[in-house]
Design a protein around this nucleic acid. Structure first.
Length: 652
RNA sequence: CGCGGGGUAGAGCAGUUGGCAGCUCGUUGGGCUCAUAACCCAAAGGUCAGUAGUUCGAAUCUACUCCCCGCAACCA
């Protein structure tokens, strides 16, 4: 009898910087599903990796005076270390720079070209030469490059295209026939509304402007578009189109592609279409999970609102972090993450509920019975015994059901119900009184039921915890023969005479007050560092200008005397600014960052000789100087607005 | 009217097919002493954003309105 197979993947992550808890989240979820399936007896293949080509990497490497390969090699080593610390049990780590992968991509490209699904055409768009990037009309800001604010030019580029449009009808049919293919439902709706109602356009799958990537086999001046390159990893990892393709035969189609919501689109449209073009079976399910939100904002480098996840692990344990990510975040939706929340939850659920349960039970067995479990003929004498048994035995069945529906947080809640019940059972059965009154038979029975319940709980914990289960098994002295998944479906397997030995605390409590102070400090330091780094990056990127060029800009002190909102514009204010001799109207996108009353009266820096431009029908005669990016924007103001300088004073 | 998600107790959230509004933390009071100042019990706290409608019955279905957050082809 061969085992049933299960093939699960994470996205291959883009190594343009260090990884954060968001990456951990996705990977931990995948690892948990993989562990769970293995416990259920599946032959699991779990794939993760890194997507190492593309312009951004090329540029980053250049900044570091490295070749792209050197640059990504270092990050890969670091990533593997992180996954090791988190206990990620991947079966293969794929890199898009692997030779086998590159060969596979070339073969796929060739195959699709031969078939006529890839064709040569030209791509026309607005191109920013310094940034080497094409932008769509909607991305441009005031008709200029959103990255560097420079002029863009209309450019025609020769490109290969994939006939995505050809598969539109087939895809719709497939979605309809396989309602479980895309999950959660909400994202599926978003996708279909956004794309299919407009109609699919063919996808540009090569670039001549990018070097760091896989070359088109029959046209070397073209580089394969990174998305096509990346998606193929799911089959190249199994040896598709290579001599050794036994894994492909064994594991394909994938049972679950786990992806973030931001790349759901590529996985739900382009990937299935590619597979159709290759005459391959489609995956069973693609799941778009949510994001972790920190203090109401998404995790971003410019905000500096994240730390190396290893710091959290060092502070507590890998199991603590895994527990938080899996239990606290509703799978599929966005979830909150903060250090405070994390430590609070760890204390409440791991230290107080689980750790303390094991601690008090093992302590009692040692204290009242010299560490020996005595199993009576019938251990279920009272209603509370039966209640406990029922809950424990049903737990594993419910966990199975919830895990199969990918309701991981529900499954963990189910386990916690039993932990709570066991804590309550102690209070109801009062072993300390039984001991005092010498009711040995009843005491043996109670202790047996408790340790047996812990055994069952611990078996369930194995699906997502990496170190704790073994530590508990050791303390309660159970042998290997009664820790299998199925053995948790039966109550009473714990043997008479089992030796229990209280160990050190499983999850020591964290002193939140103390941690809070340190947290504030590291937060401050973190944002300071981020600021400095950002400053340095900015000056480096833009290079030097001469004094003459600087003099071209005429700067003056101005004071905001009137603020109005502009109709139908989300971000724009119409400002009246006093620049001494006259008042200028300036339109500025400050709505997300400043309230109207905060702006009134401020003395600010104005570029007075900027060519006027119409924004939403209002002419803007100048520009305010402000610092920041899309996340934070601060106006440059004069010290405390003391009014020492008159409006209209020249700045130099 | 670009698309999508959300608005439920002080905070963070859950509420498949419409049937007395729940969970965790926090707060207040009590119990216990086996345990990691942990555990157990109880109480307070909500016009389920708003308005109108369908229904015997709506947090749940329909329509409209208000507010928040993402996305718009690089981001876990």
């Amino acid at each position: 009898m061969s085992k049933q197979k299960y093939y699960i993947t994470t996205p291959i992550y883009y190594p343009s910087g260090t990884f954060h808890v968001g990456h951990c989240y996705c990977t931990v979820v995948a690892d948990t599903i993989a562990r769970y399936k293995r416990l259920r007896g599946y032959d699991v293949f779990f794939l993760t990796g890194t997507d190492e080509h593309g312009q951004k990497i090329e540029r980053k490497a250049k900044d570091n005076n490295e070749t792209p390969k050197e640059y990504v090699d270092k990050i890969v080593v670091d990533t593997k270390d992180l996954w090791k610390k988190l206990g990620i049990t991947y079966d293969k780590y794929i890199r898009t720079t692997d030779l086998e992968h590159e060969e596979c991509v070339k073969k796929v490209f060739q195959k699709l070209y031969d078939k006529g699904d890839i064709y040569l055409d030209s791509y026309e768009g607005k191109y920013c030469t310094p940034c080497e990037a094409f932008w769509t009309e909607t991305q441009l800001i005031d008709g200029k490059c959103p990255d560097c604010q420079r002029e863009v030019e209309l450019l025609k580029e020769e490109s290969y295209f994939f006939k995505l449009s050809k598969y539109q009808e087939k895809l719709i049919t497939f979605y309809n026939e396989h309602p479980d293919f895309l999950e959660p439902e909400s994202r599926k709706n978003e996708m279909i509304k956004n794309f299919f109602e407009k109609g699919l356009e063919d996808l540009c799958v090569s670039r001549t402007t990018i070097n760091w990537g896989i070359k088109v086999p029959f046209d070397k001046k073209h580089t394969v578009y990174v998305w096509l390159d990346a998606l193929i990893n799911y089959i190249s990892a199994l040896g598709y189109a290579s001599i050794d393709n036994k894994n492909m035969e064994k594991y394909w189609p994938a049972d679950l592609h786990l992806v973030g919501k931001e790349i759901f689109r590529f996985h739900s449209i382009v990937w299935p279409a590619l597979l159709m073009a290759l005459d391959l079976e489609l995956p069973k399910k693609i799941y778009g999970h949510g994001w972790l939100i920190v203090d109401g904002a998404k995790i971003s480098k410019s905000l500096g609102n994240y730390k190396d996840p290893r710091l959290y692990i060092d502070q507590t344990s890998a199991d603590s972090l895994r527990h938080f990510l899996l239990h606290e975040v509703t799978f599929g939706q966005d979830g909150n993450f903060s250090e405070e929340l994390f430590l609070e939850k760890s204390n409440a659920e791991l230290s107080n509920d689980l750790g303390n349960l094991v601690s008090r039970v093992t302590a009692m067995v040692e204290k009242y019975n010299n560490g020996i479990i005595v199993k009576a003929e019938n251990v279920l004498k009272e209603d509370i015994d039966i209640d406990l048994r029922d809950l424990a035995v049903n737990m594993i069945v419910n966990v199975e059901k919830q895990m199969d529906e990918l309701k991981i947080n529900d499954a963990i809640s189910t386990i916690w119900q039993v932990i709570s019940k066991a804590n309550k059972y102690i209070d109801l059965s009062t072993p300390w009184i039984l001991s005092k009154e010498n009711k040995k038979e009843r005491l043996d029975c109670v202790l047996y039921n408790l340790v047996e319940t812990i055994r069952i709980i611990t078996i369930a914990l194995q699906m997502y915890m990496i170190e704790t289960p073994a530590r508990i098994f050791e303390q309660i002295g159970v042998e290997k023969d009664i820790i299998s998944w199925n053995s948790a479906k039966e109550f009473g397997k714990l043997k008479d005479g089992t030796k229990v030995k209280k160990g050190i605390n499983l999850f020591p409590r964290i002193d939140l007050k103390k941690e809070n102070i340190e947290m504030e400090e590291t937060k401050k330091q973190g944002s300071e560092e981020m600021k400095n780094i950002k400053e340095i990056e900015k000056t480096e990127e833009k290079g030097y200008i001469t004094i003459d060029e600087l003099e071209k800009t005429e700067l003056k002190v101005g004071q905001i005397i009137k603020v109005e909102r502009i109709e139908k514009a989300d971000k724009l204010y119409k400002l009246s600014v006093d620049i001494g001799d006259k008042t200028r109207t300036i339109v500025s996108g400050l709505v997300p960052y400043y309230k109207e009353e905060e702006l009134i009266g401020k003395q600010i820096v104005v570029v007075v000789n900027l060519k006027p431009i119409k924004l939403r029908g209002v002419e803007s005669q100048g520009m305010l100087l402000a610092a920041g990016d899309s996340d934070v924007v601060k106006l440059l103001t004069l010290d405390n607005n003391t009014g020492d300088l008159e409006n209209g004073t020249t700045i130099h």
